[in-house]
Amino acid sequence: MIKKTLTSVLSALAIAGVVSTVSTPSQAAGGAEIPSQSWSWNGPFGTFDRAALRRGLQVYAEVCSSCHSLDLVHYRDLGNIGFSIDEIKAFAIDYEVEDGPDDEGEMFTREAKPADRFVGPFANEQAARASNGGAYPPDLSLMTKARKNGANYIYALLTGYEEEAPDGVVLMDGMNYNHYFPGNQIAMAPPVDDDYVEYADGTSTSKEQIAHDIVTFLAWTAEPELEERKSLGLKVMIFLVVLTGMLYGLKRKIWAKLH
C-alpha cells in the first residue's frame, strides 16, 4: 500500500519535474495565455506550406523588413523552398550591399546576389535605435525558436494589439498595448492589419491570414532543416525499431539456453 502511494507520488513528481524544466519562463510574466494555431509543419510528417512561404516572404519584404533584419538567411536559401534561380536573382537585385575594396582600394555598393545575406534595414544597432525611438527591432531569423512556444507566440503578438489601453493602464510615450507581450507594453506599432499587402494568388488579406503567412515564413527561417530532419527521422526510426526488434529476438534466443 505504502509502496503504491509512494510510486504514484513519485511519478507525479517526476512528471512535474520534467514539465517544469521545459516550461521555465524565458519571458517575464505579464502576457496573456497564448492560443495555439494549426501549423502545416507541426507533427512528425509536417512540411512548410509552399504558397504560405511565398506570401510570407512578400510580407517580410513589404512590411517587416522596414525595421527587422534577417541576418542568418541568404537569398540563395530561397532555392530550398521552390524559388528558381531567376526568381532569387530578381528578388535580390532590389537590395544594395557594400562590397570592396576594389582595385583602387575604394568600397563600393552593388546589387545583391543570391550568395548574399538578406540585406537589413539599418547599418547597425545604433542606427536602428535612432530610427525607432530608442527601441531595437530584433533580428527575426531565429525568432520562432528564441521565444517559448515561438510560432503561436508571434502569431498572438501580431494579432494581439488593442487600439486603446484598458482602463487603469498608462502606456509610456510611444508604446502600444498588446495582450501577449510581457508587460503588455510594446514599442512596435501594430505591424499588420487587414489589406496591408496585396497577394497575387488571391488569398484573403485579413490580418489573421497575413500573420499566419509571416509566421510560417519565420518558422522556416528559424528551422530551414525541419523538413529534411523529419523525413530523415522517419527513416531512422523505422530502421531503429526493426533493428532493436531483431536485437531483442536475438537476446531472447541467446538467453533461452540459460532458463
Binding site: T21, V22, T24, S26, P44, K145, A146, R147, K148, G150, R229, K230, L232, G233, L234, V236, M237, L240, V241, L243, T244, L247, Y248, L250, K251, I254, W255
Partner: peptide, 28 residues
C-alpha cells in the same frame, strides 16, 4: 547482446528527441 538491445532502445529515445523535439531540453 543485452547491452546491444539496450543501445537500440536508447537510440530510439535519443534520436526521437533529435529528430522530432530537438530543443525540448533547451532554453529559447
Amino acid at each position: 547482446i543485452k547491452d546491444l538491445f539496450g543501445m537500440g532502445v536508447l537510440l530510439i529515445f535519443f534520436l526521437g528527441f533529435v529528430f522530432y523535439a530537438p530543443n525540448f531540453f533547451g532554453e529559447p
